[in-house]
Design a binder for these strands. Structure first.
Lengths: 175, 175
DNA sequence: ATATTATTGAACAAGATGTTCGATAATATA
DNA sequence: TATATTATCGAACATCTTGTTCAATAATAT
């Protein structure tokens, strides 16, 4: 990949990420992005078909950055579910700046979609731990949605919480 | 109120509600609304300051229509929490057409906000029923979010469910 | 019958997204 | 180093959307 391309893409990404820290997606214009990234309008559109395409790219990028390669989901389950959940909350807190913008309004559904997919895998592995007389898909949806609500709650509270304690409280509520 | 005003307002409301059944809010333009309602552009803006103002008005309208005056929240609690929740699900199912559009994307947060407020009151009344060793606000948030997730789940499943069974399953999961 | 008020339609401004294209600069290759 | 390729630039453009304005007209209340 051409150095110019790399630099431009990086400039757009980082401009967009910075803007997302202080404003929500729907209030950020392409003009804002190219001003901050200091690239031409046509250059922007040669990299991303639409403004939404950039949002998709950055969501996927940040999600991968936070969740890929961590120890939560690997085959030899040496960690308990509670430990895994605390681990996720640690990760999210570390990336506080990147995610607060993405967890608001229009972009929230998209980014939460990634997280839900991840949680679906995780809770599916542990579904047998729960002894509840309800259909499996109902239980699974409950676990995923509840933990997403916890994430949202943490985000709203500026991530000022103890991941371990929060994970423990969550486990108390769903067990 | 002038009959013309009433008619116009009603035409806009019903046009908007119909449009919301097949499209989500952010894809509906003012042009679409006034075409369907068959009113002039300036008339529209003499009734509603902005397009968002119409959304607010209709959310509040539909919410009131569904939730006000029902027996869920009145002082003499002769019904159990489970019965009240089933009751809510009945109501929502009856108004399926009106709410599916409101529960998508941009408008979802707004409409869910109304529902959350209602649920907050309801669950607060019953908070002592739950014996969980977690902070009250954490528990309350969990209950509200979980039941909202149930509502969303029902809506995604086209409201093809049994309110009683769903409420029972919910109570099993949070008890 | 008259005064008031609502509606209309058309034109307008502002702001956003996305496109096009010739000129220019940076990069890779020979 | 010379040359061909490729990315960027910038400015203009089309299109769509929201929201405003205003004089003419129609419906309503008194």
């Amino acid at each position: 990949m051409d150095r110019r391309q790399r630099k431009t893409r990086e400039a757009i990404f980082s401009a967009f990420r910075e803007l997302l820290q202080h404003r929500r997606y729907e209030n950020i214009t392409v003009q804002d992005i190219i001003d901050k990234a200091d690239v031409g309008r046509s250059t922007f559109y040669s990299h991303f078909e639409t403004k939404d395409a950039l949002l998709y790219a950055i969501c996927s990028d940040i999600f991968d950055h936070i969740f890929k390669g961590d120890m939560c989901n690997y085959p030899g389950q040496t960690h308990s579910l509670e430990e895994k959940l605390a681990h996720i909350l640690w990760h999210l807190r570390d990336h506080k700046k990147d995610i607060t913008g993405l967890l608001s309004c229009e972009s929230a559904d998209l980014f939460m979609g990634y997280i839900r997919g991840y949680l679906r895998e995780l809770f599916t592995l542990h579904l047998k731990d729960f002894n509840k007389d309800v259909p499996d898909d109902f239980l699974l949806n409950h676990l995923i949605s509840s933990f997403c609500a916890v994430i949202k709650w943490c985000s709203d509270k500026k991530m000022e919480f103890s991941p371990e304690e929060t994970a423990r409280n969550f486990m108390i509520l769903v067990s």
